[in-house]
Design a protein around this nucleic acid. Structure first.
Length: 1122
RNA sequence: GGGCGCAUAGCUCAGUUGGUUAGAGCGCGUCGCUGAUAACGACGAGGUCCCAAGUUCGAAUCUUGGUGCGCCCA
């Protein structure tokens, strides 16, 4: 016996039971053990930062990460799924600061770095339980208890190893990075923070004269919106391919140089009369020297020169000359751009390029007249100690006094402010920083990227490819506290440095001291986790004897590293490689599959690719282990972002989404999963829509459940017991395993309907396997939806008679059970990766009857493989035709208000072609039943009922006749369709006269459409027209009455809450002779349909009279349980 | 400001290499079915395929330029 179902299945409750079952029976562990010898399928978990509550968008990521490993496991692969947590970084520090109500670095340092990082470490775990619970509840199978954690010592030491490798290969260097700097707080802001703080402000916009050294009457006209950067001016940039004009002011006679395109607008704006006296390309201006607006540096360095790198004989002035820059535009300003490399990233790039042009050490140094506090230094004595923004006005005034100011204006633009102190504008400011020389490996990274299978594939050459093309060296260091310490120790005397790759290496250093700081802290608070000893501030205390200078000590640099480096190191650091687990790393590298949302393009996707290429690539130096591309991942699904219900980014404060837990409690994890997998390709950005989640229940889950429920009800009634029919082990419960069972007939011996549904099943399997192998969950789900629909709405419906029939042992009935059983069992396996709970629930019921002889969990089964011999495409086409005919028949009935319960004598089906006519004729029964008609006739001679519309086959004729097509179309439309067709039939072609030339069309060149003529109960589809005979004989009417009655009786049975198998007595009283005659005539039919023992034409004592209307006649119905 | 992506029915979304009647589900409406039943089926209404121009015999689809939204970067 199959378990009795609850009438009203509650999926969340079912899921809870399944979760318990998985846990108590260790199903996940078993699924891994069973595949241990299989080929590897390597999955990497991109570590979430457990720094906030998970929302539905995170469910998408975690669901996608689950479905493919599950699928591959069922396909026989061994897929480990090690969890991981990203624990370092600014977001954690910010979270802690928020909680403490502080925000500047100064406040952190006053509080103490030591207690601060204790708080950071503790904070990381705050939301982790929520994440673990979500992971589990969603059915994401992941080894949570063996998670890698980025602050663990073994992880940090792996990262150190990579950094030391890079350092030793000369890939780590110190330079300047221009950062968005919050001067008041003394800290750099991350891009995300800066992005939050933009707002529109009016800044002064100054046009300044830079007189040429060789011709002081002529000046470059230079534009800037940050006057305070002028004292630190180093260059003026022009675009080499733009045209520049020298104009003469007709009043003053002065000469100015600016971009030609801007002469007119600027002259208009300032009401100047300018005469162009010369033009040239920007390239011709390159190298021209000018007098900067302030001489703080110029007075000592103005004449300084250096030797050029490519020609040591030649020298050039270091600064204050015109240089080329591609970013110069004529959108605003003058086309000549003031360059203060200290205060702009692009300006700084210009400086670097200039430095590279000179012999090493001889190029221009960075000029910076501003201190980290945002105030001018002694190098600009006139403004010393003043906040830069506040000095703007005085600088403009000063320039005006000196005659250098051409125009002072206001400029409206977006400018970033500090998100923590919104009155404080940020400034770009140079900070010493450590860089990873990724640019040296750009070509390698590009080559590696080309080998990655990106989904969607536009990522490869689009967003990700473009990002690689514009690669800049990775600014690795952060002047923060909670992160992987940069493992570089510097000699206090010589400044020489070396990298260290483990704590043990430090301990072994000669003269190493400082370990007692950690020891003391641990003694004071034994709760401290040992991993902290490798963090600030403890690690900073460790010094050792310098190998570079006798008596000197080595001291660590103060920085920690970008936490993206942590996550990007995960392919090896998760194993503690190479200090340990070298074998684990080798067997789990590279990943077959990863997935994250598109915002990770420059995050985890890049950090992994960069680190992997530099460490294990093919082209680098000193690489000990090399791997063929692609690595560290081969296939990557880039998910779209999930937006809130209002189309905005999901945000807690906007409340535009529901907490995942509420979704699970209301609809269940499977409903959410199915919605995520089946509703759209995963890379489209989707709008959270609660209704759609809800809808996935009736659309798929419940529909399948109802089929299952139908099956168990009848299987139990009829005593269909596969576990008794089959002896021995049940194997995978596949068709092949059933072959020897009692009562099981090969598909070839079963009815067409059975063979059809098995063909559909195997086509579905083939599609699902093909789509899932291509990482296309959406396509796979489409095939599953179609199959379940076919199973429910055609197979079961058309097989009802067999399930109801009284003869329990009839082979046809047994066929129906075996067929449906096989379909359900196989569907369980097919849906297992997608909706693992429902699959398990169904499996435990359907396979449970075999007890120990069957596999205990569907997730331990093999994924079904299609049986090609069971697929019959022609049968599919034909069945579709029958379904279309049925559908059209119902439409025609409706148009004529002829309800389906009323039998009709005849339908005629006019086919567009005769291909399937014979087959259809032999399957008239299906149509007769479905449409409730006595006879079906097929014909192609439908002129009586229909018009034929002949159209060109555009796809075929287009390339052939091109421009004549519209005329051919018109000619065909004008001609009589029937005539054209008979012409085609007799001659094999149609000849048309179009545009003075004869066009010959064969059968392939045209397409025929059928159009029902008015006046008939007819409906047309693509392949046929269905025409009803509306004539109702008294006999047909009487039969209709009986069908009405059957339905009333069934209603009453239900009303009386009778068991499916209860037998009844029926009584009917009526004055209508027609009705009486009908009941007498069809008594056996009525009792047969309703399990009636007897049907009498009088009242039954002890039964309530039901007033009812049958046809147009009043009657009373009595139903009584026997 | 730059790069990438998206824009199709009231809602959520499909739409193959361009092919002439643009689909699904939900919702709405009408009807039907009735022992899978708090289900199910059929049909209908509902579309300037964001706008504009271009290429083409033919454009939701290709090109260009806009507009709006999102992401990443400034």
């Amino acid at each position: 016996m199959f378990p009795e179902n609850q009438q009203n299945v509650q999926f969340p409750q079912l899921e809870a039971e399944v979760l318990d079952f998985w846990k108590s029976q260790k199903i996940y562990e078993k699924s891994l053990d069973a595949r241990r010898d299989g080929p590897k399928f390597v999955f990497y978990e991109g570590p979430p930062t457990a720094n906030g509550m998970p929302h539905p968008g995170h469910c998408l990521t975690r669901a996608i990460k689950d479905v493919f490993p599950r699928y591959r496991t069922m396909k026989g692969y061994y897929c480990e799924r090690k969890a991981g947590w990203d624990t370092h970084g600014l977001p954690v520090e910010v979270e802690v600061c928020k909680e403490m109500g502080i925000h500047s670095k100064e406040e952190i340092e006053n509080f103490g770095i030591e207690p601060f990082i204790h708080k950071c470490q503790a904070s990381v775990w705050r939301y982790m339980q929520e994440w673990e619970r979500l992971t589990e509840r969603l059915g994401f199978w992941l080894k949570l208890d063996e998670a890698y954690v980025t602050y663990h010592q073994s992880y940090v030491e792996s990262v150190w190893w990579a950094l030391k490798n890079f350092y030793d290969r000369g890939l780590l260097y110190q330079g300047h990075k221009i950062v968005w700097w919050w001067a008041q707080g003394g800290t750099a802001l991350s891009a995300g923070e800066v992005g939050q703080g933009y707002r529109e402000v009016a800044d002064p916009s100054v046009y300044v004269r830079f007189p040429l050294v060789e011709d002081p009457k002529t000046a470059l006209l230079v534009w800037t919106t940050t006057p305070w950067t002028l004292p630190s001016n180093q260059f003026a940039a022009v675009h080499p391919e733009l045209e520049y004009s020298t104009v003469e002011d007709e009043e003053t006679g002065e000469h100015l140089i600016l971009a030609t395109a801007l002469v007119e607008p600027l002259a208009t704006k300032t009401k100047k009369n300018w005469k162009t006296i010369a033009t040239c390309l920007g390239a011709a201006l390159l190298g021209k020297r000018y007098l900067p607006p302030f001489d703080y540096y110029y007075k000592t360095l103005g004449d300084a020169q250096g030797r050029l790198a490519d020609n040591p004989q030649a020298t050039q002035h270091l600064a204050w000359r015109v240089v080329a820059a591609d970013f110069v535009t004529t959108d605003s300003g003058t086309g000549v751009v003031h360059q203060a490399p200290a205060f702009g990233e692009v300006d700084y790039d210009v400086l670097k390029e200039e430095q590279d042009r000179f012999a090493p050490g001889e190029g221009p140094d960075l000029i910076c007249a501003v201190g980290p506090d945002g105030k001018f230094t002694a190098e600009a004595p006139d403004y010393q100690g003043r906040w830069v923004k506040e000095a703007d006005k005085d600088i403009a005034h000063e320039l005006k006094t000196r005659g250098r100011l051409f125009l002072l204006d206001q400029y409206l633009h977006d400018y970033p402010f500090c998100w923590r102190a919104d009155e404080d504008p940020l400034i770009q400011y140079p900070r010493k920083s450590w860089f990873l020389r990724t640019t040296q490996f750009k070509d390698e990274m590009v080559a590696n990227n080309q080998q990655i299978n990106w989904l969607p594939d536009h990522i490869r050459d689009g967003r990700f490819g473009n990002f690689l093309e514009s690669n800049v060296d990775w600014a690795l260091s952060r002047e923060r506290y909670w992160g992987t310490p940069l493992p570089i120790w510097v000699c206090e005397e010589t400044g020489q440095a070396e990298a260290v790759c483990s704590y043990a290496e430090l301990e072994a250093k000669p003269g190493a001291t400082g370990f007692e700081v950690w020891a003391a802290a641990k003694k004071k608070n034994p709760e401290l986790v040992d991993d902290l000893k490798i963090h600030k501030p403890y690690i900073d205390a460790i010094t050792y004897d310098s190998p570079f200078a006798k008596g000197a000590k080595m001291q660590r640099v103060t920085e920690v590293i970008d936490c993206w480096f942590d996550s990007g190191a995960m392919p090896f650091a998760q194993w503690g490689y190479p200090h340990q687990n070298a074998d684990r790393f080798e067997e789990q590298f590279p990943a077959d599959f990863i997935s994250e949302a598109i915002d990770q393009t420059r995050g985890w996707f890049y950090s992994q690719l960069a680190i992997s290429t530099l460490l294990f690539g093919k082209g680098g130096d000193g690489q000990t282990v090399r791997h063929e591309y692609p690595h560290p991942f081969k296939n990557c699904i880039v998910l779209g972002l999930m937006l809130g219900e209002d189309g905005q980014k999901m945000s807690k404060s906007k409340r535009n989404y529901r907490e995942p837990n509420e979704i699970f409690d209301k609809y269940g994890a499977d409903a959410l999963r199915w919605y995520l997998f089946a509703n759209q390709p995963p890379w489209t950005s989707i709008r959270y829509n609660e209704q759609s989640i809800k809808d996935s229940i009736p659309e798929f889950l419940l529909r399948l459940w109802n089929v299952y429920s139908f099956f168990t009800i009848y299987a139990n009634i009829d005593g269909f017991q596969p576990e008794q029919a089959l002896t021995g082990q049940a194997g995978q419960l596949s068709g092949a395993d059933f072959a020897g069972a009692k009562g099981y007939r090969p598909a070839a011996e079963r009815s067409e309907l059975d063979r059809w549904v098995l063909s559909e099943l195997n086509q579905a399997i083939a599609t699902v396997v093909e789509r899932m192998d291509a990482y296309d969950n959406y396509g796979a789900c489409g095939a599953l939806t179609n199959f379940v629909d076919a199973l429910s709405n055609w197979y079961v419906r058309r097989s009802r008679d067999r399930f109801w029939s009284g003869d329990k042992e009839s082979p046809e009935k047994q066929d129906a059970y075996w067929t449906l059983y096989e379909c359900l069992i196989t569907t369980c396996k097919l849906i297992a990766p997608f909706t693992p709970f429902l699959a398990e629930g169904l499996w435990r019921s359907l396979a449970g009857v075999f007890g120990d002889r069957a596999i205990e969990s569907v997730h331990l089964c093999d994924f079904p493989a299609p049986d090609e011999t069971a697929i019959d495409l022609q049968l599919s086409t034909r069945m579709n035709l029958i379904r279309e005919i049925s559908s059209l028949g119902r439409k025609a009935r409706m148009d004529e208000k002829l309800k389906v319960r009323q039998p009709l004598s005849l339908v005629e089906v006019v086919l567009a072609d005769a291909t399937h006519q014979d087959w259809l004729e032999s399957h008239g029964g299906l149509i007769r039943e479905e449409l409730n008609v006595k006879d079906v006739q097929f014909t192609q001679e439908g002129q009586k009922y229909i018009d034929y519309q002949v159209q060109p086959n555009f796809k075929r004729l287009g390339p052939k006749i091109g421009k004549l097509l519209p005329q051919v179309k018109a000619a065909l439309a004008k001609a009589d369709g029937g005539e054209l067709l008979s012409q085609l039939e007799s001659n094999g072609q149609i000849t048309l006269e179009v545009g003075g030339q004869a066009i010959e069309l064969d059968g392939e060149d045209i397409q025929v459409r059928l159009q029902a003529k008015p006046g008939w109960a007819a409906a047309q589809g693509k392949m046929c027209v269905v025409v009803l005979n509306k004539e109702l004989t008294p006999e047909l009417l009487r039969e209709g009455y009986c069908k009405d009655l059957v339905r009333l009786i069934q209603d009453q049975r239900k009303e009386m809450d009778l068991a499916y198998t209860d037998r009844i007595e029926i009584g009917v009283t009526t004055d209508a002779d027609e009705l009486t005659a009908a009941l007498t005539e069809n008594g056996a039919y009525i009792t047969g349909e309703t399990l009636g023992e007897s049907l009498v034409l009088n009242a039954l004592t002890g039964a309530t009279a039901i007033e009812c209307e049958i046809g147009d006649f009043a009657a009373k119905l009595f139903v009584k349980k026997v």
